[in-house]
Each structure stands twice: as structure tokens, then as C-alpha cells.
């Protein structure tokens, strides 16, 4: 599988995993009615990608502006999967995107980064209300 593309809906985020280039993105808002139904296929594809150990660099952009608790746990699980491959020597960069002036989201990002030792964590500000 080269790509996993899931368009965003009102309650589920947009997923754009370009496995060929190692660029993974999640955008929009995430509060799915069926958490397992949404994240199940995402995790399966991600696991498949991380298991084939070609060692190429991975870039993960977390661009969610709003997510519920289940999605937060799903994100932590994804970050742990990335931490595991990074610990194994694969370069992983995680970019936590926040809207300008969203201090509580910034604090959450710092919090989420607490358990990342091998993943390179970056914080990026986006203009409020305006990323396509």
C-alpha cells in the first residue's frame, strides 16, 4: 500500500498517509461516533507501514484543531508506535500544529511530547481559522 487517504467529514479527521514518501498527516476535527470503526483501519495501515523496516525517515504532522478523549488516546497510541520505531533507529519527526494563541493546545502538545525521547518533536503555529 502506497497511500491511505480518508477525506475529512464533520466528525472525523482527514487522513493523508503517503507511505512512499514517509509523510503522514492528520487534519481537521476528530470526534467519531464509532472510534474503533474509524481508527481501526488507520492503525492497521500504520502498523503495516511501520513493520516493513526500510529505515526511511518519517514525518508526522498532527494538524487536528479539535479532538475528543478517545481520539487523544488514539493519538498517544500512534505516538508510542512512532517512538518504538524511532528507538529502533528510524528518524521520526512529529510536528504538533496549533492555531495562534491557542495556549491550552500548546500545553497539551508539550504534555503529549513528554514520553517522546527518540522522536523529534516540533511545535508549529498556524494562522487561526485558516489552514486548508
Amino acid at each position: 500500500m502506497d497511500c491511505l487517504i480518508i477525506p475529512a467529514t464533520g466528525r472525523t479527521p482527514g487522513v493523508s498517509f503517503d507511505f512512499a514518501s514517509g509523510h503522514l498527516r492528520m487534519t481537521g476535527e476528530s470526534y467519531p461516533d464509532d472510534v474503533a470503526g474509524f481508527f481501526g483501519p488507520v492503525f492497521e495501515a500504520l502498523r503495516g507501514f511501520l513493520d516493513c523496516a526500510d529505515g526511511a525517515a518519517i514525518r508526522f504532522d498532527m494538524e487536528l484543531l479539535y479532538f475528543n478523549s478517545s481520539s487523544a488516546k488514539a493519538l498517544m497510541n500512534i505516538f508510542q508506535m512512532l517512538e518504538t520505531v524511532a528507538k529502533g533507529g528510524r528518524p521520526v519527526t512529529l510536528t504538533w500544529c496549533i492555531e495562534e494563541n491557542d495556549d491550552s493546545m500548546r500545553e497539551l502538545g508539550e504534555d503529549f511530547a513528554e514520553d517522546l525521547r527518540y522522536v523529534v518533536f516540533r511545535m508549529r503555529e498556524m494562522p487561526a481559522g485558516g489552514v486548508p
Partner: peptide
């Protein structure tokens, strides 16, 4: 330990959502 930290994080996420 990881699970406890995740639990603390989830509480914060939940509080943030409630405030929003």
C-alpha cells in the same frame, strides 16, 4: 508509569473539552 501519565493527559484533554 506510562499509563498513569496518559491518564493525566486524558484528564487534561477532557477538562479542555469541557471548558470549550
Amino acid at each position: 508509569e506510562l499509563s498513569t501519565r496518559e491518564q493525566q493527559r486524558l484528564v487534561r484533554v477532557s477538562d479542555r473539552l469541557q471548558a470549550q
